[in-house]
Write a protein that binds this DNA or RNA. Structure first.
Lengths: 191, 191
DNA sequence: GTTGATGCAAAGCGTTTGCAGGCCC
DNA sequence: GGGCCTGCAAACGCTTTGCATCAAC
C-alpha cells in the first residue's frame, strides 16, 4: 500500500508538484481503495468537492500516477479505462473474477498462477513479465439466486458484466446507452 | 473451425441473409485465420476488393458474427477491438502471450488453466464460465536479441505492446499517433 | 409490401491536446 | 521569468446510429 509520503517523494523525484487538484484526485483513489474507478467516476467525485476542476486534469493526473506506478490501469470491457491503487509489494498476482449477472468484481491472489506460468515459459520459451487474468462467470450469490429463482441483479452493475461472453471483451460492445454504474458500485470483496 | 455451411445455417436460423458484403467480410476472416484483425483492417482489405463498401457494414457484420459465435472479440490494449474466427470446438482455452518488445501475439492452449480454475472455484465459490488470460513479456526471439544486443523491433508492431507494463491495459494509452500495424502484421504463431 | 441490409454522414463516447492564463520558486 | 500546472474547448479515433435507398421474398 503506497503511503502518501512515498507517493509524494516519487512525484518530487520526477519534478512533479503536488497541487490541490492532484491531492484531491489521489485522495479519491485512496478513499476508494480496492475499487476500480473510471476517469469519469473520479471526475464526478472530484466535482462534488471542487466544481470547477476539469476532466483534463483528471486524465493528466491519472496518467502521471500510472506512470509513477501508483495506479494500475484496468479494463473490464465497458469501454472505459479503470484504475486502482497499485500495491507495489505484490503487483503481480492480483486478478479479477467478474460476475456476469450482478457485475461484482472479486479480486483474488492466486499462487497457482505460478505453476501455469512456469509451464508456459517451459513450453514456449516466452518470458512472462506481467499478466492480465480475468475470469467471467457467476459469483456464489448469483448462483444461489439462480437456484432459488430469485433475481439478484445489482442495480449498480457495470454494464460490461451483463453482456454475452462473446462480446464482452473490448469496450466497443455498446458505447452508448449503458448503465451508468455509480462510483463504488462494485461492492463485494474477497481475497 | 467453423465451416462455411455451418455459419450459413446459423445465419439462416436467425433470419440473417448472406449478402455479398457479408460473404466478403467472412472470407477475410477465414483467409486470415489465426490473426487478430481490427474492424479497420477488415475494412481496408474489403476496400481493396470492393471500394464502395462501407465501414458501418463491417461493424454490423462483425457484430452479427460475434453474436453468432463465429467471431471472438479480443482486446490487446491498442484501443481498438480485434476479432478472430472462434473455434467452437474449444473456445475455452486459447490464450495469448504478447511480446512487449516486438508485438508478436503468440497463442497457447493450456490445460494447466484447468487446475487454476478448479482452485479458484473451490476457494471462492465463483462459477467460471469464460476467461481472458494474457501474459505480457518477451518472446524467445526478443530474449535472444536482448542477450546478443541486437535490436529486434518488429516494424509492424501493435503499439500496445511497446508500452510500459503499467499503462498497457485498456486502449486509452495513446489513441492517436500510434504505429499503424499493417493487417496481419502479427506474424509468428506457436501452438 | 414487408423485412432486412446497405452506404453515407453524423453523432456519440472516452480520451487527448492546444492554448492562454495562473502559480510558484 | 521560466517552468510546470490548470481549465476550457476543440480535436481525435473508434464505434454506433439515423435515414433514405435498395434487394429479396
Amino acid at each position: 500500500m503506497p503511503l502518501l509520503k512515498e507517493i509524494y517523494e516519487r512525484m518530487l523525484e520526477r519534478g512533479h508538484k503536488l497541487t490541490p487538484q492532484r491531492w484531491a484526485i489521489l485522495n479519491i483513489f485512496l478513499q476508494n481503495r480496492g475499487q476500480h474507478l473510471s476517469a469519469d467516476e473520479v471526475y464526478t467525485q472530484l466535482k462534488a468537492l471542487y466544481p470547477n476542476h476539469g476532466i483534463a486534469t483528471v486524465y493528466r493526473t491519472i496518467d502521471m500516477l500510472v506512470d509513477l506506478g501508483v495506479l494500475k490501469k484496468l479494463e473490464f470491457g465497458d469501454g472505459r479505462s479503470r484504475f486502482e491503487i497499485c500495491d507495489p509489494g505484490e503487483p503481480e498476482h492480483h486478478h479479477h473474477l467478474i460476475c456476469q449477472q450482478c457485475g461484482t468484481v472479486i479480486e483474488f491472489q492466486e499462487d497457482l498462477v505460478h505453476s501455469l506460468e512456469a509451464a508456459i515459459q517451459r513450453k514456449t520459451g516466452f518470458l512472462i513479465q506481467d499478466r492480465t487474468i480475468k475470469f467471467y462467470g457467476l459469483c456464489s450469490q448469483c448462483q444461489q439466486a439462480q437456484k432459488t429463482g430469485t433475481p439478484d441483479r445489482n442495480p449498480t452493475e457495470v454494464s460490461a458484466t451483463a453482456r454475452s461472453p462473446q462480446e464482452r471483451e473490448a469496450g466497443a460492445g455498446s458505447r452508448q446507452g449503458r448503465a451508468e454504474g455509480a462510483a463504488g458500485g462494485e461492492g463485494k470483496k474477497q481475497g
